[in-house]
Write a protein that binds this DNA or RNA. Structure first.
Length: 517
DNA sequence: GGTCCTTTGAAGGAC
DNA sequence: GTCCTTCAAAGGACC
């Protein structure tokens, strides 16, 4: 459980250490009115999982995978239909195909100010996002009922029927949250506050934003509640709002091409249209991501931080400091997000997006270290199982003398503990040689102070995270490789930081705890 | 321009 | 069932 009773997110230096079930109990004692207990939240999460499983099917994932082929056909049909709808609604002005758009969605009741999930009633502040998109907005466009009373472009029934056990009318499941005000896109404009702008940089082909003032009674809490709305080249996407989860395959460049080729399409464009690229359907945001999107701007404003890494650290701590109720709301939102995502893309799999990013640094490091042809240190050459073959310094986690001349093992960035036990390298690699963001600039008052020592914090984070998983009722067991994670993180972090010696000492202490684990 | 950093949670593959 | 990896957002920093 991420709850922290010891100072919440303000005590950055020891929060991770303090994440313990004992604290949870203490917190519960301190907050007797909190109806949510540890078990409650776990039950909640469990129920969410169960509900999803019930709604889908035990083999929903397999079914989704198995329906990939069908989905491809459906996606194509869906696209075609959207194009048709597009042409119908914009008079054919919007010609840029390949933008499967999410159907429009009215503000769900659950997110209205008087709802149980109202930010105004649950302290979950609604912060104007830096990109003008409310974190919960990503939920909205999932509904496919809102764009058209009888959405012909979304054969949900068909899709649902394809999924064993997923045959459900979303109205039953989601109507309470996504009920419509009998309107579509055309009706929302006069009554609904929204900001229409591109969710993603470059998504707005015209590069401008539209902001509508709020006329919705009681919408003060949402007066800045922006709806993501991609404007087509003509200024308005025919189908209203694309879902933020959908990203054109080539991203910004493609949109820029839309900008330039709005009315005069080069032949290259025409060729591209003949070969529509599959849009990238992004993963639905999890609870923490939703929380981050909402609170990021707030943290930025409070702490005058800009680096996302530092901000995310703060947000992570604040996330732990959130009450169960507050967290439960985000879990619920995330669950709905997943449900909607699953309904819209029943055959989508998170695996589909694998490989979208280049290989991770870790993977690269593994590759390099695993290369027997270019051993850079005893550790890489012989591995952990043959430590007896290591040179003495390597055994003592010092610089490797065997392969040092070969140009390796001198960097604290190694995956071993040399970064912690050894003083900073006199000639650290410029690569990734950056101080920890929170060390680079002091946190402003009111912000969670940075950890007393970054290494200590880092080294302690994995266990804390493990506790978090447990506390959250994560069905998975907490990582039992604390030492491994600790080592990995220690080396990783130290790589990007010439931590002071004091920090290294602190890290060494933490490391001891970890390795003993 | 691409990647990393940094966070937590979800998903899926491997064993 | 457990472990591990990847991706989701974000924007500055780095190469």
């Amino acid at each position: 459980m991420p709850q922290l009773s010891s100072g919440g997110g303000d005590d950055l230096g020891a929060n991770d250490e303090m994440i313990a079930f004992k604290d949870e109990g203490e917190q519960e004692e301190k907050i007797p009115e909190n109806a949510f207990t540890e078990r409650d939240l776990a039950d909640l999460k469990s129920s969410l999982v169960n509900e999803s499983e019930i709604n889908q099917s035990p083999s929903a994932a397999a079914v989704r995978r198995g329906q990939q082929g069908e989905q491809r056909g459906y996606a194509e049909k869906h696209r075609e239909h959207l194009d048709g709808v597009s042409k119908q609604q914009d008079g054919g002005m919007y010609k840029a195909a390949g933008y499967p758009t999410y159907p429009f969605l009215m503000l769900p009741d659950a997110y209205l100010p008087n709802s149980s999930v109202s930010p105004s009633s649950n302290k979950v502040s609604v912060v104007q996002q830096s990109h003008g998109m409310h974190p919960l907005t990503s939920l909205l466009p999932y509904s496919n009922e809102h764009f058209s009373p009888s959405p012909p472009h979304l054969p949900l029934d068909i899709d649902m029927s394809q999924k064993t056990g997923v045959h459900r009318h979303q109205s039953q499941d989601l109507s309470g949250y996504y009920s419509l005000s009998s309107g579509g896109v055309g009706q929302i404009a006069p009554s609904m506050s929204w900001q229409s702008q591109s969710v993603y940089p470059g998504l707005s082909p015209c590069g401008f934003r539209q902001t509508y003032s709020s006329n919705l009674p009681g919408a003060s809490s949402y007066s800045r509640f922006p709806h993501s709305l991609m404007l087509g080249p003509s200024g308005m996407h025919p189908t209203g709002i694309p879902h933020p989860a959908i990203v054109p395959p080539t991203g910004k460049q493609e949109h820029e091409q839309y900008d330039r080729g709005m009315y005069v399409k080069p032949q290259v464009e025409a060729k591209r249209e003949k070969e529509p690229k599959k849009p990238v359907i992004k993963k639905p945001l999890n609870a923490f991501m939703l929380y981050m999107k909402e609170m990021r701007a707030k943290v930025i404003a409070e702490c005058t931080l800009k680096e996302s890494a530092a901000i995310n650290q703060i947000l992570g701590r604040r996330w732990h400091a959130l009450s169960r109720e507050e967290q439960a709301k985000y879990y619920e939102l995330a669950r709905k997000e997943r449900q909607l995502h699953m309904q819209l893309y029943p055959t989508w799999s998170a695996r589909d997006n694998y490989g979208k990013k280049k290989r991770r640094k870790r993977e690269k490091q593994q590759d390099s270290s695993a290369d027997p042809g270019s051993p850079k240190k005893c550790r890489a050459r012989f591995g952990l199982n043959q430590q007896t073959d290591w040179c003495g310094p390597c055994r003592r986690k010092k610089k490797c003398i065997r392969y040092l001349q070969g140009g390796g093992c001198s960097s604290p960035a190694s995956s071993d503990l040399s970064a912690i036990d050894s003083p900073p390298s006199p000639s650290p690699s410029p690569s990734r040689h950056r101080l920890h963001p929170q060390l680079q600039r002091p946190a402003s008052p009111g912000c969670s102070p940075p950890p007393a020592s970054p290494s200590a914090h880092f080294a302690l984070s994995p266990p804390a995270r493990a506790h978090t998983r447990l506390a959250h009722g994560d069905p998975r067991q907490p990582p039992t490789k604390h030492s491994l994670v600790g080592l990995e993180l220690s080396g990783k972090r130290a790589f990007g930081s010439t931590a002071p010696l004091s920090a290294a000492k602190a890290a060494g202490l933490s490391l001891k705890v970890l390795t003993e684990t």
